[in-house]
Design a protein around this nucleic acid. Structure first.
Length: 363
DNA sequence: AACCCGTGGCT
DNA sequence: TAGCCAAGGGT
């Protein structure tokens, strides 16, 4: 089985940027980016990151803001914060080098069993098993597992360790993931191209389309959110989210959940008072957008607002700033806020146009 | 152990 | 379209 998979990999394995190196740092960065994220999404982020922060000391010394900006749009931002923190730990405890023993690697924030196995096998050719989404699916089909994989993790880890090639663990683990990603796919598996077809219990029982078993996800609740784009002269108010919150460390336009019996406009006035401590008034409605998070979806209504009074203070956020529109792109924003940028810039351009035509009419 | 955490592609 | 899924980890 190891030989047939090896032959298949030599002919059909994917050519990926992080496979051109054995630098454990580069492989670590790729593994963390790839957590719950598709290869095609990761590639440009990986290239940009390695260009900007090519070594562990570069990452450790980088401001958090820069790290989050490089991660902006990838999601699960705690991965970036943990990567940053782990680099600083490695500077303190390992002289800026990446450790080679499993226990030390596993102790780093943001690295669990699968990521540790991925790094140690890819960078140092160590025989450490992995169990990512691809491998779970391949193994669940191989043994025709009659339970959802999540209920059988100890068994699946044992299987991953059993099948692992002790002589060429690097190539084997990569091959197993590629097999899952391109042949043993979640939908419409290409069993005709699979090197393990003869040994696959799911295929032999005709269950390859039904396995692995899945557990239906509960439907996601929907929330109504309102945010304020507060203008004071030429500056816009933004705040940085609390470290304990979702999207921690990212910047946003202040706002929050619309309470029962409250209009969206009343909501932003209240939220800005609570979070920032200033009084504002609504000028106009800018846009309404939809956005889906992992566990809920939102409708987000954005208002252009005018600053009235009070001093902006970080009451329910980490930091508050007044910035010019052109400076917005320097700050990392979550996806839902980014959807507002085109509307905002269009509105600002329209305002400028109105001013220009006014002044040309009355020179 | 169950829940939290983002986003984009695909069907 | 709405749901599913992706190189999971932390708590």
């Amino acid at each position: 089985m190891r030989e047939s998979l090896g032959r298949w990999y030599r002919a059909h394995g994917r050519d990926l940027p992080w496979r051109h190196t054995q630098d454990p740092y580069a492989i670590w960065v790729s593994e963390v980016m790839l957590q719950q994220t598709q290869v095609a999404t990761v590639i440009p982020y990986f290239q940009r990151w390695m260009q900007a922060l090519p070594r562990i000391p570069d990452l450790a010394a980088a401001p958090q803001q820069r790290v989050l900006k490089l991660w902006e749009g990838l999601g699960y931002y705690r991965r970036a914060l943990n990567l940053h923190k782990a680099a600083q730990i490695l500077m303190q405890e390992q002289q800026g080098t990446f450790p080679t023993d499993l226990e030390t690697v596993l102790a780093l924030p943001g690295i669990g069993r699968t990521t540790a196995g991925g790094i140690l096998s890819a960078a140092f050719n160590q025989p450490v098993p992995i169990l990512d989404g691809n491998v779970k699916r391949v193994l669940a089909r191989l043994v025709a597992l009659q339970h959802p994989p999540a209920q059988c993790l100890p068994l699946l880890w044992q299987l991953s360790e059993q099948v692992l090639d002790p002589v060429q663990p690097r190539r084997f683990n990569q091959a197993l993931m590629d097999l899952g990603a391109t042949v043993c796919r979640p939908k419409q598996p290409r069993c005709g191209e699979c090197p393990w077809q003869a040994e696959c219990s799911a295929y032999n029982r005709g269950q390859h389309h039904q396995l692995p078993m899945s557990v239906p996800r509960p439907s996601r609740p929907h929330k109504q959110i309102a945010v304020a784009i507060v203008l004071r002269g030429k500056e816009i108010l933004i705040d940085q989210r609390l470290e304990t919150s979702m999207l921690s460390g990212l910047w946003e336009f202040p706002g929050g959940k619309i309470e029962p019996g409250e209009t969206a406009a009343e909501c932003v006035v209240r939220e800005v008072k609570e979070e920032i401590g200033i009084d504002i008034e609504v000028v106009t409605e800018l846009a309404t957008i939809e956005h889906a998070y992992t566990h809920f979806t939102i409708t987000l209504i954005a208002f252009i607002c005018r600053y009235l009074s009070g001093e902006a203070r970080p009451l329910q956020c980490t930091e508050v700033r007044w910035v010019r529109p052109a400076e917005l792109s320097k700050f990392p924003f979550p996806g839902a806020n980014q959807k507002l940028f085109p509307y905002l810039h269009a509105w600002l351009a329209e305002q400028r146009g109105a001013l220009d035509s006014e002044s040309s009419r009355d020179p």
